[in-house]
Every structure is written in structure tokens, then in C-alpha cells.
Design a protein around this nucleic acid. Sequence first.
DNA 1: CACCGCGTTCGCACTATGTGCGAAACGGCT
DNA 2: AGCCGTTTCGCACATAGTGCGAACGCGGTG
Lengths: 258, 258
Amino acid sequence: MSAEERHGGAGIQSAERVLRILELVGAAPTGLTAAEIAQRLGLGQSTTYRLLATLHRQDYLARQSGEHRYILGRTVDQLGRALQYQLVATDPVRQVLRAMHDAVGAPAYLTVFRGDDIAVAHIEDSAAHPRIGQLHVGFSEASHTTAFGKLMLASRDDAGVARFLERHSPARLTASSITDAATLHDQLDEIRAQQVAVEIEEYLPKLACIAAPVRSAAGRTVGAVSVSVQAKDFAARSAHLERAVRRGAWQVSARLSG
Amino acid sequence: MSAEERHGGAGIQSAERVLRILELVGAAPTGLTAAEIAQRLGLGQSTTYRLLATLHRQDYLARQSGEHRYILGRTVDQLGRALQYQLVATDPVRQVLRAMHDAVGAPAYLTVFRGDDIAVAHIEDSAAHPRIGQLHVGFSEASHTTAFGKLMLASRDDAGVARFLERHSPARLTASSITDAATLHDQLDEIRAQQVAVEIEEYLPKLACIAAPVRSAAGRTVGAVSVSVQAKDFAARSAHLERAVRRGAWQVSARLSG
DNA sequence: CACCGCGTTCGCACTATGTGCGAAACGGCT
DNA sequence: AGCCGTTTCGCACATAGTGCGAACGCGGTG
């Protein structure tokens, strides 16, 4: 055993290297040469070429004729598409979000829970009601300070929540962010009872968000539908918004099973 | 040496296994359990778990709390996005295609050359002028029977073309498809001279397509802009179409460099 | 033409690296 | 308790992976 972890020691070296190569090439807009990769990973030529050959064979990497640079290949595209598909942002689902957006006059979000991450699968907004903050389609770390983050945590049992908190210490984002585990625990229980999660200025100042759970055919909570509005408007509109997200989440769930 | 290739012998076994796992998981809409993966690959438990641990650590795979299934993780998303970015289908570029579509009243395509593959980066169409055939956004094998495929081959030297033909024997798709290497060679020369490629019913019956090359700042041909129309209309409109794709390709090239 | 510089492949010797097997620790469920 | 299935651990073996240096191929250059 050379280095790595002293005990346990998962981590197949050559596998890690291959994965790292993919990331390197992905991060380089115009690709990388074998030499550059070898150098950045501190590997010998021989080894590098064999790793690259493996990636090339499986079409994870491609290279232009003539050029000596490696770029991402078709298999990466396939994987990305497969993932996109798994995020269920299909046309019928988008229509639901659009209807929600039109009904409440605010940006509507579909998020999908993936391990400890939350994937924003789709955002339906408009010039009049633009998406807020830096929230964009793609993966992001889950946070207990967002309405859908709460929903995700609420879908777990105590042990699951504990495991999450071990890895993600509850950082305070705004003055209203919860940092106390007991308080969070209570709030999750209430969310489990109501099947709706609310967040007011815990994630971003001036903003509030309300989310309802999307379920798989088997009943598992797999994601959330949410809308975000100005915090000052929230109290007056909450009943209406709640009905809208509940309906939207239900419709999305139905579209999934169908 | 166990099996695999008798000589030479590229192919890092554990790397291949890791990549194969990614594909397996990607192909399974709801993910796979460790046992299923082990079984499908014919591997021992121990080994499988170590490979999975590696993928999990680097966030190529994720798993829901509670669930024992592995699903694609955030790094796959990142790679897919990086690739998308490399395909240059940015907003300004799309605007160019939209303008082309409006100008010629036909679907407009942006393709990017990637090794021996062609990636359809974007299609701009409309209800009145829908995209044709099964051509969709994503990777596909290059073919000398498409206008952009010809353009890609024309961007290579003789050796490069030869290498391509070794792997992709020129199959006849329609009655008009070229199958003779010498004829193809001549046509490629003409394309190099004109800097435009035309295809009439060589790929799909009743359809014609005209494409112009997109270039990188360095002058390399990196892709193509094209429009496809009914074959019977082509002759009468060809001058107009040619001007449109030339202008579009130029504009896209400029957007890339800028 | 002989001489580089660069990218790529080859051969080889060494042992670290990856492997399978079996046992054991978990965790849920009845 | 007992009985799943899942996951971790420990160990012994040799395969699979590694680095090094040399050879090959090629395009450009004085």
C-alpha cells in the first residue's frame, strides 16, 4: 500500500486516473494532447497512452483527424442524455410548469433529488417573471435553506438526515437560516405532516419559496415542484401558491407514472 | 496475459470496467444495485464495491438515501454540460440559425465535427418548416452521403479520408449515393474549391441539403451550417440557398472567434 | 540527405495494484 | 432470536498495471 488512505482504502488507481482524464479534457475547451495530460497527472507516457487508448476505444474521447488533441466523445454525450432523461424534464412535465408559471405569475421550478445533490431539471420563467438569483438548470449541493432542500431532507428518516448533516454542516446563509439541528428536526416533522415546505429569506434575502413533493409510482419522493416570489408578497398569497404547487406536483407525479 | 488482445494489448481492465459501469447505470432508468452490476459484469462483490466506491467518491455515481441503487451523479452532468459548451450551440449562434431559417423558409442545422462523428449541435425549425427525417440533436456517425459529412471529409487530407473509409465502408443509402472512391475523391476536390457541399437525394429520397464550413479562429474547419429543402425545389433556389448558408457559416465562425 | 523534435508504440522487468474468496459486521424484517 | 441481503474486512496470490528506455514514424529544416 503506497499512500492514499491508511485503512479501508477504496480507490482503484487506474480507474481514478481515467475519470480524472475525462474531467481534465472536459475542462479544456479545445481539448488536450497526450503530453499535456501525462504532465498534469504526473504520469509516464506509456501509461498515459494506454489509458487514453482505453477511453478512445469506448468513444469517451475522440480526436480530430490530423490534430493531436483529445476531446470528449460520443459516449459522454450519451451519458449526459441518459441523465437528462432520468431527470424527467420531458415535454408534458414542462407544460405543467408552464401552467403553474402562468397561474401564479412567478418562476416555477422542477427539482430532482439525487443522493445528496439536487438537480434543477427545469425552470419555467418569463421576461415578466424571471428566475431569481444564480439558480440554474443543473446539479447543485442540497441545502436545508431552500424549500426543496427541506423537502428532500424531510423524505429521509432520522439516520438519513443525520448522515446528510455530517457531510454538510448547516451553514448560515442569511439571518433567518436555521442552524440548530433540533429546530430543523421539528420543522422537518411539520413538513412531513403538511407535505409542503416553505422558506422565507433563508436562502436569499427578499425571496420566499414554496415547494411540494413529486412522487414516483412507488410512492417515493423523487423531487419537488416549487415557485419563488418576493418575500413581502408571500403572506398575502400563500394559500393560493400552496394550492398551485400542490396541484403542479400532483400533475407532474401523474405524468411520470403514466 | 489473460485474454483480450493477443498482442499490443491496450485496455486497462479496471478502467474499462469503470466505464462500462457508467454505461450500464446510464441505461437503467432507475439505476442498478451493486449486486446487479456485479452480476452483469461477472465480477466478484469485493471488486464491484471497490469500483463503485471509486465512482461514488468522484461523484460519477450517486445513490438515494435508503435506496441501494446507484444512479448517475453530478460529475456526469458536468461532463455533459462541458461537451454541450464545446459544441458551441450558444445563444448568439442560435440566433444566426434562426435568421437563416426565417430567410430561406427551411430548417437550419449546425453540426460540429468530432473525430469520425458528427454532432448535430442545434436545429432551428418551425411548425411550417419542420426538421426532416430522424436527424436529431446529438452525435451520429458521419456519412459521405450528407452535405456536412462531405464537408467534414473535404477538410481532411487524402490519408485522413482513407483512414475514414477504412472504418466506414461507403454504404449506398439511396440510388444516388456515391460508392466509388474515385468519384468521391473528385467531389471532395470540388468541394474544397467551392467551399460548399451539396447533396441531392443521396441521404434521404426527396431531400436535398447544402452546407458551408464553420471555421475556428485558427482557420480549421470545425463544423458546418446547412439547410435542407425538397429536392424538387432545389435547382430553382440553389443560388439563394448557397448565399444564405455561406453567410450563416461566416457569421457563426465570427461568433466563435469573438 | 542527415538531422532534429515530437508523437506514438514496443519490450521488458518489477512489484505495487487489483483481484477473488471467504468470513464477518451491519441492518431490516418476521 | 433467527434469517435475509448488503456492505466491509482480511488475506494470499499473481495478474494487471506500471515506469523506463529504446525504437519507430513522420514532418520540417538547415
